[in-house]
Amino acid sequence: MAGLSRSQIEARIRAAQREAERKIKAELDRVNRENKRRVDDYNRKVDQHNRQVLQAQQRRVDAYNAEVARVNAHNQRVNTHNEQTNARNRATISELNRHLRSAASGPRYTPAEQDLADRVQQRAAQHPERDHDAFLSYARIDGSEVGVALRAELELLGASVWFDEVAIIPGKSQALQMDKGLRSARCGIALLTPAYLTGRFWTERELGALLHKETLIPVLHNVTFEQVAEYSGILPDLAGFETARDSVQDIAAKIAAAILPTSTT
Results as ranks from 00 to 15, higher is better:
Ala2Asn: 14
Leu4Arg: 15
Arg6Ser: 01
Glu10Phe: 11
Glu10Asp: 07
Ala11Gln: 13
Ala11Gly: 09
Ala11Ile: 05
Ile13Ala: 06
Ala15Phe: 12
Gln17Pro: 01
Arg18Lys: 14
Ala20Trp: 14
Arg22Lys: 14
Lys23Cys: 03
Glu27Ile: 03
Leu28Met: 08
Val31Met: 04
Lys36Pro: 01
Arg38Pro: 02
Val39Gln: 10
Val39Thr: 13
Asp40Ser: 10
His49Pro: 03
Val53Phe: 09
Leu54His: 13
Leu54Val: 11
Ala56Arg: 15
Arg59Leu: 10
Val61Thr: 12
Ala63Gln: 11
Asn65Tyr: 14
Ala66Val: 04
Asn72Met: 12
Ala73Trp: 07
Gln76Phe: 09
Val78Lys: 12
Val78Pro: 04
His81Met: 00
Asn82Gly: 00
Glu83Pro: 02
Asn86Tyr: 14
Arg88Glu: 02
Asn89Val: 15
Arg90Pro: 02
Ser94Ile: 11
Glu95Thr: 08
Arg98Trp: 00
His99Arg: 15
Ala103Val: 06
Ala103Arg: 12
Ala104Thr: 09
Pro107Tyr: 09
Arg108Glu: 03
Tyr109Ile: 02
Thr110Ile: 09
Gln114Trp: 00
Asp115Thr: 03
Ala117Trp: 06
Asp118Glu: 12
Gln121Asp: 11
Ser137Tyr: 13
Gly147Leu: 00
Val148Asp: 14
Val148Asn: 10
Glu153Thr: 04
Leu154Asn: 05
Gly158Ala: 01
Ser160Ala: 10
Ser160Arg: 15
Val161Tyr: 09
Val161Gly: 02
Phe163Met: 04
Asp164Cys: 07
Ile168Thr: 08
Ile168Lys: 10
Pro170Asn: 08
Gly171His: 10
Gln174His: 12
Gln174Trp: 11
Leu176Ile: 03
Gln177Glu: 07
Lys180Trp: 08
Leu182His: 13
Arg186Pro: 03
Ile189Phe: 10
Ala190His: 11
Ala190Gly: 01
Thr193Trp: 00
Leu197Val: 02
Arg200Ala: 00
Phe201Asp: 03
Thr203Met: 05
Glu204Trp: 00
Val219Gln: 05
His221Asp: 05
Val223Glu: 04
Phe225Lys: 15
Phe225Gly: 08
Gln227Glu: 13
Gln227Gly: 00
Tyr231Gly: 02
Pro236Thr: 06
Asp237Phe: 05
Leu238Asn: 11
Gly240Val: 04
Phe241Arg: 02
Phe241Cys: 00
Thr243Ile: 03
Val248Asp: 01
Val248Arg: 13
Ile251Trp: 03
Ile251Met: 04
Ile255Gln: 07
Ile255His: 12
Thr262Trp: 07
